[in-house]
Amino acid sequence: MSELFEPKIVAFVCTYCTYAGADLAGTSRLKYAPNVRIVRLPCTGRISPMFILKALQKGADGVLVSGCHPGDCHFTHGNYHARRRWMVFRALLDFTGISPERVKFSWISAAEGSKFADLINSVTEDIRNLGPFDQYQQLIKETESPATL
């Protein structure tokens, strides 16, 4: 295997912080791994765990969920609600054998363009090391409705 595995990663981000952070990374001409497809949502509180499952269902090897730091939420506490939900959902994924290494969470503010770029690079590297999510992709194949990512 000489060719490098390029993981597919889906990032669900809130529009006020992380998306703006990603924008800043772009306008600052920071280079980061092209493996991430960004989905912008109004708030981390709007990021349903269903989205994570959907991304996996469509063949993602990893998922990133990111929003405003605690205290900075545009809607004052959407991210506090999200944090609890993630913690529980993460435990559930872990218990059913979907490694939490594949589903990452972060806080990135609108000012943290370089944190965004660094995080995307490190997440991509981590997922690359884990390799493709074969177990799940085998299940997708069995359904005869191939992934569309």
Binding site: H77, Y80, R83, R84, M87, F105, W107
Partner: peptide
Amino acid sequence: SFKKDDTETFIL
């Protein structure tokens, strides 16, 4: 519901 100091060790 939530608490402002809920654990978040897993968040990057």
